[in-house]
């Protein structure tokens, strides 16, 4: 029975022109064409989108949470990447 199951797809929707596609959820579909149509019917019933991406879930490669420390924490100490790190005297504008 279980081998008749359709593959799982991740759905990304662009809600309006100028914004990037955002992950909204997943669904089942036998092929890409069907996945796009199902995404339209499942995730844009209230005009939530103008463009759809679907990716078969097993094609998504993710970073592992146990590596989060080494992947993301080093960036925390690089405060100089942020504009608020720098002092700008009062009266200077447009910077």
């Amino acid at each position: 029975m279980a081998n008749n199951e359709w593959p799982l797809w991740e759905v990304f929707i662009r809600s309006k022109q100028g914004l990037s596609h955002k992950h909204v959820g997943s669904l089942r579909a036998a092929d890409a064409e069907m996945a796009v149509e199902n995404a339209r019917d499942v995730y844009t019933r209230r005009s939530e989108g103008i463009s759809i991406w679907v990716v078969e879930s097993n094609n998504v490669h993710a970073s592992h949470p146990t590596e989060a420390d080494s992947l993301f924490e080093p960036a925390h100490s690089k405060v100089y990447r942020h504009p608020t790190f720098y002092d700008v005297p009062d009266g200077i504008e447009h910077m």
């Binding site: 089942r28 579909a29 149509e37 019917d41 499942v42």
Partner: peptide, 11 residues
């Protein structure tokens, strides 16, 4: 026949 298609037919 499957949830996704149920939704599609209702649309």
């Amino acid at each position: 026949p499957i949830l996704e298609e149920d939704i599609a037919m209702t649309n």
